[in-house]
Design a protein around this nucleic acid. Structure first.
Lengths: 233, 233
DNA sequence: ACATGTGAAGCGCTTCACAGCG
DNA sequence: CGCTGTGAAGCGCTTCACATGT
């Protein structure tokens, strides 16, 4: 980037001299996407530490498997609370990351599609540990309706909209077959869900105003396959 | 990048004039990482199409939710077999992607840790559909050993090395608790596994020569949390 | 006329290197 | 001295725009 040049934001052109920081703060006010993805990793590493009051970027970097400079830059987006010559205060750092990630709020989750994967997720301890509470399960199969998984009763699909709305759920997890994933996402959106985590092996076109993240298990295997294939040539 | 400038590769500096393509072909010979991640998505989209002989980059881009130019550039790494004014031959394109991803080989998979998630993955149809065959399951729990999941007998951890070696398995899926994930990865590496897919909520330091990919379900939720939190400020 | 293939510009993340400060 | 915070350079991916080809 040419420093001191003009920054184009949509059709608007602004000149901040050499100050990209001002640009970020005033115009975008955003933490880089890649940083957001690393914050949970840092948090996890920090939570596994004990018996020390401070952490250095080198230490955290080694645990998270990244470059120390990256750790420092990432953390600098949350504010300036490291101590030179010492490191970061462990408790404060954990708190700041949780705050930034919005983990101080308790988010409620519903899961649509109680197959093997849906059931596994309903039982997944990692959700509860992070403050995500599963409040409802939905499935179209009459044989499943009424039975419980981890204490939560499986409800019929027809009740989805009303149930989600009354519980004020924020996140919808889609573990349905691929063919009904889009439809499911739209129903969830209509019911007032704000974000969707999609495990169905298909691309969901995000409904208006909804943030969709995709986790595709077989995609991951295919990526591994590529690199194995490559290495053996 | 300054075109016509020098390209540094390690300590070696080479000058290829303006030709980044030559540089890629001769020195790196690699498809960009992000492209590799998108190829499975394209493939999935193509497999869902029928009743037409050709696809255009615009069409594929719309289905995959990306920019058309990106599709063309991605595909150009696999070779030059689009037809101007027409598009890509559907069957040929599917074949080329499968070839590039190494999906023409059948990879064998073992799963370590048969909890809810491990069981879900053992049953996961998406693996079989893509040519990944689960050949063994391992768990330390004596109560589980000997029972079957989807036709595969659960074996004790002690048999892992010998069993993996004799079956010539290529991919190890780690669905153990976080505390034993590293250890598990090293055992898998010692047994001759070549790649690891890690679902344990922790960072595995890759054993020598092993490619490790990490899928963390709660990380994904935390990323969603960040953006929801952000929006409501 | 239409869609690919691709230089080149744009943009954002990574990494270096060091000033700044306890 | 040690470690953070950060300009600036490096690098790779994205996107544009259009030459190229059918």
């Amino acid at each position: 980037m040419v420093c001191g040049g003009a920054c184009g934001v949509g059709r608007l052109f602004l000149d901040f001299g050499c100050c990209w920081r001002v640009y970020r703060a005033l115009v975008k006010s955003t933490v880089p996407k890649v940083t957001v993805q690393r914050l949970p990793v840092y948090l996890h590493c920090l939570e596994g530490m004990s018996g020390q009051e401070h952490v250095s970027s080198d230490q955290l970097a080694a645990m998270a498997g990244v470059n120390p400079a990256k750790v420092r830059k990432d953390l600098s987006f949350l504010g300036t609370f490291g101590v030179r010559g010492v490191g970061y205060d462990l408790d404060q750092l954990k708190f700041q990351i949780r705050l930034e990630l919005g983990l101080e709020e308790e988010w409620t989750v519903v899961i649509v599609g109680v197959g093997n994967l849906g059931r596994a997720l309903a039982n997944y301890a990692g959700f509860t540990e992070r403050g995500f509470r599963v409040v409802a399960l939905f499935d179209p199969d009459p044989a499943k309706i009424g039975s419980k998984v981890d204490g939560i009763t499986i409800e019929p699909l027809e009740d989805l909209e009303q149930s989600v709305r009354s519980k004020g759920a924020a996140i919808g997890v889609v573990t349905t077959p691929a063919v009904v994933a889009q439809e499911t996402a739209e129903t969830l959106a209509a019911a007032g869900i704000r974000s969707i985590l999609n495990f169905a092996p298909t691309v969901i076109k995000p409904p208006e105003g909804i943030d969709v993240r995709r986790v595709d298990l077989s995609t991951e295997l295919q990526v591994l396959s590529f690199y194995m294939h490559r290495r053996s040539r």
